[in-house]
Design a protein around this nucleic acid. Structure first.
Lengths: 352, 352
DNA sequence: CTGAAAGCGCTTACAG
DNA sequence: CTGAAAGCGCTTACAG
């Protein structure tokens, strides 16, 4: 509070003007090597940190961020949550003279993705937040951004390399692993369980299959998991008669079924099925706090939901980009989301 | 980004100067009713929001916050975590021209608490963050602050009323309830469990007994909890021969012991005991990510730890006060912390 | 009751 | 290569 060091202070010490200090601070304009060195060492000693309020106030040119995010529809309600965080961040960074434009695309349509990409490129933004749903197209897009020198932050991504500023996402393998641990904790040894993939045929299923791998990976590695038998089932929810037909068959074939793990955010579909059939005592574990999932969790039909603070993900992706643009801060390349365990008992206190 | 409304804009529309608008904005100085009304309605229509960067830059008088927090010692390592958050917040709000002074006291000594209170009052701060460990003294202190018009934020508190700005804390009953749910999920029906209070004789045990109440409250209310037998045991860790003696006795009396719940942050003590006796397969649930607890969680001796983002609590308490001081924002009176479930599998991704 | 002016710390043309 | 000046939006004495 008291005596923070200002640019003016080091200028005074160095016997130059504030403008010159600013020039070496930002590697801008020509400064003689001698004064440059002097100022640099003065800055080192003085633990100078810029006043962010003053910095953003003085910042003339507004920055524009483009966010490319899937539409949230009834088949995929997940994306409403990151969008909420993005909107919140957008409001906050108005004071940093930075604006956010959101471009929505249809998760089921590569051409819709493609045309939004075009629009974004034409708008010539200062930075991009991207949900790289269609991997190959996203990679090409990333290259175009690189050529133009536009930084890009990835959200809910499993890309681990590529020329992006930062990537947000859960460790999907470990989250499946955790789900298995919870399942095994709750069922009797010798039980039989079902690993359920509820996907659309053309959907991106990389996340989902990593979760499944993590889940099955737990068994065999652990004491408790040893004598559990797992069956895997994939159901196309858009097919007629589904998911009832497939679930009926599975139930008939596994009469001793003790638990179901759903790799997608659609555990509610299974919960609905179990309720209508009056099947009780089957442990159900799934992902994401969608409206429908929350309800079944509160009723007790779903036992655990695994979440990843999707709103935070949206919020942080924008803030990361903004801090990079405005303050030139370099973020961590990978920013893992938490793997949160949500139950009926703690959901009311969960900050999404 | 483009055209945010400024004070100057409404001044122009109202045909007055910026100073006058500022006066009605802050209810300061005398302004004629007519111009006041005009400006007020103009503000309503224009969805004016102040530029926070400019606001804090122009803010002349520095604010001083005093934080009264227990020392973190080996018997109570918990408080290191909120302190970390407080320090982080302190760094950030330097730009808001606000400083934080931390006063530590000995949790076991009311007189130490008392003398720190005096120091704080004498320093005449603009706001106070308080861990109300000694309830009665804290209540008196609160009154003195009220008289002086100094706002106070409580941290890790179960006070639900009193004249404070905001209070942070977990719903301790519900967190015990959740622990019971997890316990019951994992043990066989008919098992016997131990509810363990590890306290010092003079320590504040309100938190701990609320957790215990929540834990026992689960049984009887739920299907799964019906035929579980619970024994409660209190151990004074500072007594000679403890906790070994008491635990030896308990083990002898409950040979079928399937699970132990520890209401304090010292589950590690039990974990150490179980390891040294080669007792495996007993489910152990406790609180807080202390160094020792983390280690036993990773080894698998502790099954679940319940956490409440203590660092966030420290951080948010300072930020809440700062926003009130600088921007006159009114926070929620009670701000519940999350009830997080931490396991070996997700601890690496947990943001404390 | 109201306006004009100076200042917060940083940035940005502009002039030399 | 360097300095002086103006400006970002808000606040704060000061003068009337």
């Amino acid at each position: 509070v008291t005596n923070r060091i200002r640019i003016k202070d080091i200028a005074l010490q160095a016997g130059v003007s504030a403008g010159t200090v600013d020039r070496v601070l930002h590697n801008r304009g020509e400064v003689s090597q001698a004064t440059r060195d002097k100022i640099l060492s003065l800055i080192q000693e003085s633990d100078y940190t810029p006043n962010l309020a003053a910095k953003s106030l003085a910042n003339r040119n507004p920055y524009r961020i483009a966010a490319l995010i899937p539409e949230g529809n009834s088949l995929n309600p997940y994306w409403k949550m990151p969008i909420k965080g993005i909107r919140r961040a957008a409001r906050e960074i108005l004071d940093y003279n930075t604006g956010v434009e959101i471009y929505r695309f249809d998760m089921d349509s590569q051409s819709s993705f493609q045309s939004r990409l075009r629009e974004v490129l034409e708008s010539n933004p200062d930075g991009v937040v991207l949900a790289p749903v269609f991997q190959d197209r996203a990679a090409e897009f990333l290259k175009e951004l690189n050529d133009k020198g536009i930084p890009c932050v990835l959200i809910d991504s499993r890309l681990r390399k590529g020329n992006f500023l930062s990537a947000f996402g859960q460790d999907t393998f470990k989250s499946g692993f955790l789900a298995a641990r919870l399942m095994c904790f709750g069922i009797r040894p010798g039980s039989s369980i079902l690993l359920l993939k509820l996907a659309r045929p053309d959907g991106i299923i990389h996340h989902l299959s990593r979760r499944a791998k993590g889940f099955t990976g737990y068994f065999g590695r652990s004491e408790r998991g040893k004598d559990i038998s797992i069956r895997t089932l994939t159901i196309d929810l858009t097919a007629p008669g589904e998911p009832e037909d497939s679930l009926n068959r599975a139930m008939a074939e596994q009469p001793d079924l003790a638990g179901i793990f759903v790799t997608s955010s659609r555990a509610s579909v299974v919960a609905e099925y179990l309720e209508s059939r009056n099947k009780e005592g089957i442990i159900l574990i799934g992902y994401d706090l969608t409206e429908a999932n929350r309800n079944y969790l509160k009723k007790g039909t779903i036992d655990f939901l695994i979440s990843q603070k999707p709103e935070d993900q949206g919020y942080n992706s924008i803030m990361t980009l903004c801090r990079n643009l405005v303050f030139k801060l370099l973020p961590a390349k990978i920013q893992y989301s938490p793997i949160d365990i949500i139950t009926k008992e703690n959901i009311d206190f969960y900050q999404t």
